[in-house]
């Protein structure tokens, strides 16, 4: 039960940080808040038993992502032009939220062992990782072996993104 309260408190804090981040006009503060957002998200992932994901979020979201955003801010203006409150987008967001909230009521209760998601392929992965692959970390065995194609695709996406950034910003021009 205490785990539930920690979880509820962390996700509430996360919502608060996100709300502040989009309200501020000084982009340095916004970027730093988004770094804090990632760090709290990583903590929340630990509470939710996703240690591998927490690890990645802490290293990527709070580390590299913030550094890239700061590097961008060193090249572009660091203040946002003040805007009026936009009614149409706010209305759209509220309407979508209402629809999603209605849909969420039908989801299985949080943490339910008998939820459909836990009875599909997950038991096979947990058992297979012990017998077929014999490594304790199930996330690694699913990532690299059962879903190897998926991970190959993701690696190629990362590769492609790097090539794209190098082409856009690399500054390679043809010699005249």
């Amino acid at each position: 039960m205490s785990g539930f309260f920690v979880n509820a408190a962390l996700i509430s804090l996360l919502t608060l940080i996100a709300f502040l981040a989009i309200r501020l006009h000084r982009l340095f503060a916004v970027v730093m808040l988004s770094g804090a957002f990632s760090l709290v998200a990583a903590t929340l992932f630990v509470v939710l038993d996703a240690v591998d994901v927490a690890f990645t979020e802490a290293a990527v979201g709070a580390g590299i992502s913030t550094i890239l955003a700061l590097a961008t801010l060193s090249l572009v203006p660091a203040n946002e032009k003040p805007h009026d409150f936009a009614f149409v987008p706010a209305f759209l967001a509220f309407a979508t939220a209402a629809m999603l909230a209605v849909a969420v009521a039908d989801l299985p209760v949080f943490g339910d062992v008998n939820a459909p998601i836990h009875n599909h392929v997950a038991p096979d992965y947990l058992q297979g990782s012990a017998e077929d692959i014999a490594i304790p970390n199930v996330v690694t065995s699913v990532l690299a072996s059962y879903r190897g194609f998926d991970t190959l695709g993701e690696t190629v996406v990362v590769f492609t993104a790097a090539i794209a950034v190098l082409l856009v910003l690399g500054g390679w021009t043809r010699r005249k």
Binding site: D52, V53, T56, S65, Y125, L143, V158, A161, A162
Partner: peptide, 22 residues
């Protein structure tokens, strides 16, 4: 805990930062 969402999100985070960089 169910390992499948962890795997999907783990890769999605790294791909996310790569696309954000673009």
């Amino acid at each position: 805990a169910n390992p499948l969402p962890h795997v999907l999100i783990l890769t999605a985070i790294v791909v996310g930062v790569a696309t954000t960089a673009v």
